[in-house]
């Protein structure tokens, strides 16, 4: 394999990992906010892809705007969906054991998957490109503008999310609620509002990932399960409840899959991913980075 081909493969793995990172980030935000796994995260990614396809003709194509401008629109739309999601999947169950939320998110995932199948049809669809056209050639390596757009958008969104949660008043409040809802309520933060915001953010990130993936990798109603699995693994190896760990875990998975597949086969790559995972759990049973989430029942 030439080094050029290798570089191209690495770039692909990185782009895939970057999109996984957005999914995992949304996943971990919900874990931190309410302590529950959101089994619908994969379907929300798929929904983001279809949302982009649905609104692209209304916005981008008509006005001749690049798909990149769709990103904030899709995120806004999905954020709104996230508010509804919180009120359906979480708030009616907030006083119940967390496993109830597992099932409510499973149910919503089913609804989204089959709604997409019924409304958009079973065929895979191609999403709007972020930026059309060929990109620059760097040392013989053709960088497609689309891929650069995906990488750039993902990097921007990951850092913006980190800054928002770490540096802004609202972000700090969200984290305070995540750490100790009662204490937060006692100092005048309204936990319900912060939890709603967490869901909105998580779903918006999933939607963004959906748009970023939809052009290069298409979108079909049955894609959800795959993304959910990848996010779950990323979050666990990165240290349950850590934002940085989720991003790191996702990038590692993206690179690992692509690189191992490039040198062996897809079968080996997948088997080895789970094999390494089991070995890691056997020798380092608490993830790559120490976990930071509060303990829960």
């Amino acid at each position: 394999m030439t080094s050029l081909a290798l570089a191209q493969i690495l770039l692909n793995g990185l782009a895939l990992g970057a999109a996984y990172a957005l999914i995992a980030l949304g996943f971990v935000i919900v874990i931190n906010a309410v302590g529950a796994v959101n089994f619908a995260q994969g379907e929300l990614v798929m929904a983001g892809g279809f949302a982009a396809i649905a609104i692209a003709p209304l916005v981008g194509d008509a006005a001749g705007l690049p798909g990149l401008l769709l990103l904030p629109l899709v995120m806004l739309l999905m954020g709104g969906l996230g508010v509804g999601f919180a009120h359906l999947a979480y708030f009616p169950l907030r006083k119940r054991p967390r496993v109830a939320v597992f099932v409510s998110t499973i149910a919503i995932g089913l609804v989204l998957q089959h709604l997409a199948n019924a409304v958009f049809g079973a065929a895979p669809r191609v999403g709007p490109p972020l930026i059309a056209g060929d990109g620059p050639v760097v040392g013989g390596l053709t960088l497609s503008l689309q891929q650069l757009g995906v990488l750039g958008s993902a990097a921007l969104l990951v850092s913006a999310t980190g800054l928002f949660l770490g540096r802004t008043q609202t972000g700090r409040r969200m984290r305070a609620v995540a750490q100790d809802p009662e204490m937060a309520a006692a100092i005048g933060i309204r936990p319900a509002r912060m939890i709603t915001l967490s869901f909105a953010l998580a779903v918006a990130l999933a939607g963004a990932a959906g748009l970023l993936l939809s052009n290069q990798f298409f979108v079909s109603p049955n894609d959800g399960g795959l993304f959910m699995l990848k996010a779950y693994i990323a979050v666990t190896i990165g240290g349950w409840g850590r934002l940085d760990g989720a991003v790191l875990g996702a990038l590692l998975i993206g690179l690992f899959e692509t690189l191992v597949a490039a040198f062996t086969s897809y079968l080996v790559a997948e088997a080895l991913l789970y094999g390494v995972l089991l070995a890691m759990l056997a020798f380092r049973p608490s993830g790559l980075l120490p976990e930071r989430a509060r303990t829960r029942v």
């Binding site: 349950w240 079968l267 789970y274």
Partner: peptide, 28 residues
Amino acid sequence: IPVLRLASHYFALATLGIAQLTLLAAIN
């Protein structure tokens, strides 16, 4: 023995890994 000593979500992930490996074996 290796799996049951793991805490909650790591236990979940380990059991998931074993399930996925079994599925791969069945297909291939």
